[in-house]
C-alpha cells in the first residue's frame, strides 16, 4: 500500500490543510512509512470479531430535558478572532 501525491493532496484537502506540492512530496514519504507500519495489521483474521469502539461496555447515560445554561456569549466572544453584534464573523459564505 502506498499513497500517491494526489492521495496526499486529497486528504489535505479533506482536512482543510493547505499543502504545497513540495510539502505533499515530503509528507507522502513520511505517511508511506507510517502506512507500512499500519499495514501489518491487515494480515490478521478478524472474522467474527466485534469492533471495539469504547474502553468500557456501558451504555449512554441520559440527561433530563432541562435548560441549565445561561448566556455567556460575552465571555466566549472575548477570545474570538472577529465578532460584531454578537455574531462571529467569517469571510463571506457563498452558497
Amino acid at each position: 500500500m502506498s499513497l500517491s501525491p494526489d492521495d496526499v493532496k486529497r486528504i489535505a484537502r479533506l482536512a482543510r490543510i493547505e499543502t504545497s506540492d513540495a510539502e505533499a512530496q515530503a509528507t507522502q514519504a513520511q505517511l508511506n512509512s507510517i502506512f507500512d507500519l499500519i499495514a501489518t495489521m491487515q494480515a490478521v483474521d478478524t472474522a467474527g470479531i466485534a469492533p471495539m469502539a469504547h474502553a468500557q461496555e456501558v451504555y449512554q447515560r441520559l440527561r433530563d430535558d432541562a435548560v441549565t445554561e445561561t448566556d455567556r456569549h460575552a465571555a466566549f466572544q472575548a477570545v474570538a478572532p472577529a465578532v460584531e453584534n454578537g455574531l462571529y464573523l467569517v469571510p463571506k459564505v457563498i452558497e
Binding site: 472577529a82 460584531e84 455574531l87 462571529y88 464573523l89
Partner: peptide
C-alpha cells in the same frame, strides 16, 4: 453585509 463578511449565530 458585515463589511463583506458573513455573521454566524449558533
Amino acid at each position: 453585509d458585515f463589511h463583506g463578511m458573513t455573521g454566524i449565530d449558533l
